[in-house]
Computed example of a mutant assay.
Amino acid sequence: MRSPLLGVWERLRQGSTSFLVDASLGALLAGWAVVDTLAEPALAPAACLPAAVASGSVALRTRAPMAMAVLASVGFLGYGLAPGTSTPLWSFVTILVVAFAVGAQLRGRRRWAAMSVLLLVTYAVQILDAHRSPGELTWGEVFLTPAVLVLGPALAGWLLQRARRQAVDLRRLAAELETERGRYAAAAAEAERSRIARELHDVISHSVSVMVVQAGAAEQLLPPGSPAREQIRAVRNTGKEALAELRRQLGLLGTGGDPAPLPGLDDLPQLARATGATLTSEGVPAGDTSPGLGLTAYRVVQEALTNASRYAAGASVRIRVVHRGDELELDVANDAGRPADQRGSGRGLAGMRERVELYGGSLDAGPREGGWRVHAWLPRRSGSPR
Rank of each mutant, 00 (worst) to 15 (best):
T62R: 13
P83V: 04
A130H: 06
R273L: 15
Y79C: 02
F92P: 06
T145S: 12
T62G: 11
A336V: 10
G78Q: 04
V208K: 04
V121C: 01
G371P: 00
P291G: 07
P339W: 10
A72C: 14
L358S: 09
G225T: 03
G254H: 00
S24G: 14
Y311S: 00
P261D: 01
V332E: 04
A191L: 14
R273D: 15
T94C: 04
A277F: 03
A30W: 02
R324A: 15
L159F: 10
L49R: 05
G346V: 01
R386C: 15
L71D: 05
R109Y: 12
L265G: 04
V212G: 07
G75A: 03
P4N: 01
Q14S: 10
S86K: 07
A47Q: 05
V284F: 07
E219Q: 09
P41V: 01
R386W: 15
A39F: 12
G84F: 01
R373W: 06
L378V: 05
A365Y: 07
T255E: 00
L118C: 14
V235E: 09
D331Y: 05
A59C: 11
A333D: 06
L12V: 08
E176A: 10
G366Y: 08
G182Q: 03
A67R: 08
A167F: 01
L29F: 04
A244R: 15
D267V: 05
S384F: 13
T122S: 15
L128G: 01
T145A: 11
M352P: 02
D202E: 11
L151D: 15
L149N: 14
A234M: 13
V374N: 00
L149M: 13
N237Y: 06
V374P: 13
H206D: 15
L173W: 13
R61D: 11
T37S: 10
A260L: 13
R2P: 15
G15F: 05
C48G: 08
G152P: 08
P269D: 05
G257T: 03
R343Q: 11
P263W: 03
V70L: 09
L118G: 14
S18I: 10
G287C: 07
